[in-house]
Design a protein around this nucleic acid. Structure first.
Length: 424
RNA sequence: GGAGAGGUGGCCGAGUGGUCGAAGGCACCAGAUUGCUAAUCUGGCGUACUGGGUAACCGGUACCGAGGGUUCGAAUCCCUCCCUCUCCGCCA
């Protein structure tokens, strides 16, 4: 959520920033108009309430006759206040709803662009291997031949976009999770948490997945529960509505969780293989940092994701999102993509965002520098560290051998009971 | 699911219709003081919105789990909901 005071005080700056992400100036005007009406009413109402408090106090000391005489008048004042409060609540709701639907402002250095076509490749490491003696297979063929991915039975139970990982496939994923978490916690300074996978509406508003993206999430309509689309939701909300001491920052959190997504927007896309499912595993990184540090913390976050690719010895590249491809909450964003020779594409295995104070304002996530200092919003960042299905794809496809077996990446062998190969 | 108890400021805890944004204590901050490593004294110490001021700051309003109601006036009375604890049942 943007700061209403920023919109009020520097509307031209907000208009210009939002124009870059495709928001029309009229939307800003509507917010300003609503805010002006809200403030006017608030002021009038406050005066009425002050009068009531004063007069009521006097009435309490007055004689019985005086009380009876004034009661009707006071009652009328009370009724005016009640109706004013209703109107104010409506105006506040209207203003709030509009603010919740406005996307974040991009950082000034983010390249201007309309779509993913305008994104920038900023760097890469490793070279896609040449295959002279055989044609690399896509993971869905490798997985089925080895019996480590069972698509048919997944579909039988749950429909399209579901699969079983079986035997060494399940273990390989578990190895990746354990290995990644060890790097996050032992080397990169993250605190591991195991968060709730179902969260309430407030949490999902906090992370900015609501109100705009309600139809992307699974939901329990009887209880107030959303199934998390990413661990970003519980992690960024972990300290919601709290005021942290400044010396607790930065807070680095990591979690392995399943994620649940309806994928309505991508109906028919990526239906083959395990690239895009309704349910997938992910190791997530979230940072809560001092506002002055968030730009540099984003660079470190991306590097934390890259390190996983690097140690797997799989070619990867870093893409800087242009303004048109930032998404709703990010002020600045990088994707990390791994090369998959079987399906012949760069797979987005991580998406790292600096959300500035956008989520923190929604989640009321603040810190205080010292006694008497004003609470300030922290900056929140999040990134995958990495998404499991696509990492698994990259491992299978890059480490496949001509005979159809998979070499276990050296870094994973300790997590695979020492196994060096996955064979039929 | 049933029965009971309870939700007050960072924490503990008083407060059953007006003088309560809320006693008292702890913690914390500032100052004073003592030559003994901490004690004592004094003052300060919530958040949000909002009016005024360049600002330090001054003022108004709201907030005692949430939302409604009664009343001139609600932390206090009534209703609904949420949460926590204890016991029972049920399921693991």
């Amino acid at each position: 959520m943007l700061d209403i005071k920023l919109i009020r005080d520097q509307p031209e700056l907000v208009r210009a920033g939002l124009a870059k992400v495709g928001v029309e100036a009229a939307e800003v005007e509507r917010v300003l108009d609503s805010d002006a009406r809200r403030r006017k009413l608030q002021f009038e109402l406050d005066e009425l309430r002050a009068r009531r408090a004063r007069d009521s106090k006097e009435l309490g000391k007055a004689s019985l006759e005086e009380r009876d005489a004034k009661r009707a008048e006071m009652r009328a004042l009370g009724d005016r206040i009640t109706s004013g409060e209703r109107e104010l609540a409506e105006l506040e709701g209207e203003c709030e709803r509009m603010l919740l639907e406005l996307p974040n402002l991009p950082r000034p250095h983010v390249p201007i662009g309309k779509s993913d076509a305008d994104n920038k490749i900023v760097r890469g490491e490793g070279t896609p291997r040449e295959y002279s003696s055989f044609k690399p297979l896509p993971h869905w063929e490798l997985g089925e031949k080895l019996g480590i991915i069972d698509f048919d039975r997944g579909v039988k139970l749950s429909g399209t976009r579901f699969h079983f990982l079986v035997g060494a496939g399940a273990r390989l994923e578990r190895a990746l999770i354990a290995w990644m978490l060890d790097i996050k916690t032992l080397e990169q300074g993250y605190l591991e948490v195991a968060p709730p996978l179902m969260v309430n509406t407030a949490a999902v508003i906090g992370s900015a997945h609501l109100p705009k993206f309600a139809d992307t999430m699974y939901r329990d309509f009887e209880e107030d529960f959303y199934f998390i689309p990413t661990a970003e939701v519980p992690l960024t909300n972990m300290y919601a509505r709290e005021i942290l001491d400044a010396d607790r920052l930065p807070i680095y959190l990591t979690a392995y969780t399943p994620c649940f997504r309806r994928e309505k927007m991508s109906a028919g896309r990526d239906v083959r293989g395990i690239k895009r499912g309704h349910q997938f595993d992910k190791v997530e990184m979230v940072k809560l940092v001092h506002p002055e540090k968030s730009d540099e913390e984003l660079e470190k976050l991306v590097e934390n994701a890259c390190e996983i690719c690097r140690r797997l010895e799989i070619p990867f590249r870093v893409i800087q999102m242009c303004t048109g491809d930032l998404g709703f909450a990010a002020a600045s964003k990088y994707d990390v993509e791994m090369w998959a020779p079987g399906c012949g594409e760069w797979l987005e295995v991580s998406s790292c965002s600096n959300c500035w104070d956008f989520q923190a304002r929604r989640a009321q996530l603040r810190f205080r520098t010292g006694k008497g200092a004003k609470p300030e919003f922290v900056h929140t960042l999040n990134g995958s560290g990495l998404g499991l299905p696509r990492t698994l794809i990259a491992v299978l496809e890059n480490y496949q051998n001509e005979d159809g077996s998979i070499t276990v990446p050296p870094v994973l062998r300790p997590y695979m009971g020492g196994a060096e190969r996955i064979t039929k």
